[in-house]
C-alpha cells in the first residue's frame, strides 16, 4: 500500500530527484511511447519500420549522387573513390542537426499535444520530452546506420573511431533533452514561442558549419564555430565517422559540461512548473 501526500508545495528538490526515478519506474511506458512515435509515420505502409532505415538510406544515396556526381563539389579527398565527397560530408553533419531540430520542434508542442494526459490522468509529464528526444535520437541512429552502410560499400572500411560515438551521443542526449524541457515550458506558457522557435532553428542551421566547412570560416566570425555547441557536435560526428580522428579533448569536455548544465537547468525548471501545466491548457 502506497501513501501519497499531495501538498501545496510541489517542485521541492526531493520531488525533482524523485522524478529522475520515474524514468526508471515508467521505463515500459517510455519504451511504448517511443515505439509508438517511431511506428506512427510508417503505420499502414507495407514495409513498416523498415522505412526507418530505408528513408535515410535513400537520402544519403541521393546526396552522394547529386553532390558528388552531378555538381561535383569537393571539400575533402577520399582515398579510393573521389565520388565520396560533399554528399557524405553534408549528410554526416545533417544527421545530428536533424535530431536536434526534431527534438526542439516537437518538444515545444509536447505538453499541448498531450493535453489529455496532462489534464485527465495523473501522468508524469517529465517523460514526454524524454520520449520525443529518444525518438529523434533513434532516428538519428538509423540515419547513421544508413551512412555507415554507404561508407562500407564505397570505402570498404569503417574507422574504429565510430565505436567512440556513444561518448558524443550521451552529452548530445542531455543537451537536446535540457533544451526540450525549456522549450516545453516556454511553449506551454507562451504559445508564440512555437513560431519563433522554427525561425531560430532554421537560423542555427546556417550559422552552424553543416553546409560549409568549419575551416573556411573567416577570422572575425570564428566564434560561430568556437562557441557553438552544435558546431562541435557536427564536427565530432564528422571526425569520428568520416575522418577517423578524435575531436579535441578540451572541446569535448566543455561540450559535455555544457550539456550537463543545460540538462540540469531544463530539468529543474520543468519540474518546478509542471504542476501548473493542467491549469495553463
Amino acid at each position: 500500500m502506497s501513501t501519497k501526500v499531495l501538498s501545496a508545495k510541489p517542485g521541492s528538490w526531493r520531488a525533482i530527484l524523485g522524478s529522475l526515478a520515474t524514468f526508471y519506474e515508467r521505463r515500459w511506458l517510455i519504451k511504448y511511447f517511443v515505439q509508438r512515435q517511431m511506428a506512427r509515420g510508417y503505420k499502414g505502409s507495407y514495409l513498416g519500420l523498415v522505412w526507418a532505415f530505408l528513408a535515410p538510406l535513400l537520402m544519403v544515396v541521393m546526396f552522394t549522387v547529386i553532390f558528388s556526381e552531378v555538381i561535383g563539389i569537393r571539400f575533402r579527398e577520399v582515398t579510393g573513390d573521389s565520388s565520396l565527397n560533399f554528399g557524405l560530408f553534408l549528410y554526416c553533419g545533417l544527421v545530428p542537426f536533424l535530431a536536434y531540430q526534431q527534438a526542439l520542434t516537437q518538444g515545444v508542442n509536447v505538453i499541448r499535444r498531450n493535453s489529455d494526459l496532462v489534464q485527465k490522468v495523473v501522468f508524469p509529464t517529465e517523460i514526454l520530452p524524454l520520449t520525443t528526444v529518444l525518438t529523434s535520437l533513434l532516428q538519428n541512429a538509423f540515419g547513421l546506420g544508413a551512412l555507415m552502410l554507404v561508407l562500407t560499400v564505397l570505402e570498404q572500411q569503417l574507422h574504429w573511431t565510430i565505436l567512440l560515438l556513444p561518448l558524443v551521443v550521451v552529452p548530445q542526449l542531455l543537451l537536446t533533452l535540457g533544451l526540450s524541457y525549456l522549450m516545453a515550458v516556454a511553449g506551454t506558457y507562451v504559445p508564440d514561442v512555437r513560431e519563433t522557435l522554427r525561425t531560430f532553428v532554421r537560423a542555427t542551421f546556417w550559422i552552424t558549419p553543416i553546409l560549409w566547412p568549419a575551416g573556411r570560416v573567416p577570422e572575425n566570425l570564428s566564434f560561430l564555430v568556437d562557441y557553438n555547441p552544435l558546431a562541435f557536435l557536427v564536427g565530432a560526428y564528422r571526425a569520428l565517422i568520416l575522418d577517423g580522428e578524435l575531436p579535441g579533448a578540451m572541446a569535448s569536455i566543455y561540450f559535455s559540461l555544457f550539456a550537463v548544465a543545460v540538462f540540469g537547468v531544463g530539468f529543474v525548471v520543468f519540474n518546478r512548473v509542471k504542476h501548473n501545466f493542467a491549469d495553463q491548457l
Binding site: 500500500m1 501526500v5 499531495l6 501545496a8 496532462v118 485527465k120 490522468v121 495523473v122 493542467a278 491549469d279
Partner: peptide
C-alpha cells in the same frame, strides 16, 4: 493529483485510479 490545490493537503492511501475521461 491532476490539479494541485492552492492551499491545503490531500493524502491518498492506496492505488488510485481516476476515470474522468475514458481511454485517455
Amino acid at each position: 493529483g491532476m490539479l494541485q490545490p492552492t492551499s491545503g493537503t490531500v493524502e491518498v492511501n492506496g492505488r488510485l485510479v481516476a476515470l474522468s475521461g475514458f481511454g485517455v
